[in-house]
Amino acid sequence: MNNNTAEPSETMIEMIKVSKLYPPDVVALKDVSISVAVGEMFFIIGMSGAGKTTLLKLISSMEPPTKGLIEISGNPIHQLKGFKLARLRQKIGVAYQDFKLLADRTTAENIAISMEVSYKKPSIIRKRVKDLLAQLNLTDKHNTITCELSRGEQQRVTLARAIANSPTMILVDEPTGNLDATTTEKVMQLLTKCNKSGATIVIATHDDSIYRHTSHRIMELREGRTHAIVGGNGT
């Protein structure tokens, strides 16, 4: 993050007319504009292929936009490089749809990786990993190699890694895709807890059970375009 420490009323994500094209001519996103405030929980919904994952990839600077401007806490993210970009990424926790777990490492090591890059003390890392595993019902999987975990367990480990470093923004792609109802509730409780402690949460999902009764804003994407933004103060 830069020196402009974000205040609660400030904007965390600013996207103006953002488009993403994949060669040869696949339009993943077209002129998407959104503004997400600091500390907001924001849902992105839509069918498979609507552009949800692409949007998260652009916000997390995994990929550059073809057109348009993306700012995180006032920083044009695709112009950042080197140390500044690394520092910003440390403040963004991402739970990827394809998990991106290191298959030959234990659950604890996978979660610890996001804290190690910001040089947290080993004792703090150990404690945080234990706490997160307990909250996600994975205590007994502490030393299990992640390739031996079920899909649901892997999904929870991914989420634990995303929130382990106490980021100011958490991007979650299909957090409940492989989970039962009880675990889904636990995951949502954890994300709500993070949100209450100040983190901005962006959840991309097609599971209506997690946003059906929400008071937070929901953006629907259809074929890469913003179809509607509902909820929040504007409802």
Binding site: F83, Q90, V94, I113, V117, R161
Partner: peptide
């Protein structure tokens, strides 16, 4: 993954 979680170039 290290890049995505914010590892610096030196790291």
């Amino acid at each position: 993954l290290l890049k995505l979680v914010g590892a610096t170039n030196n790291y």
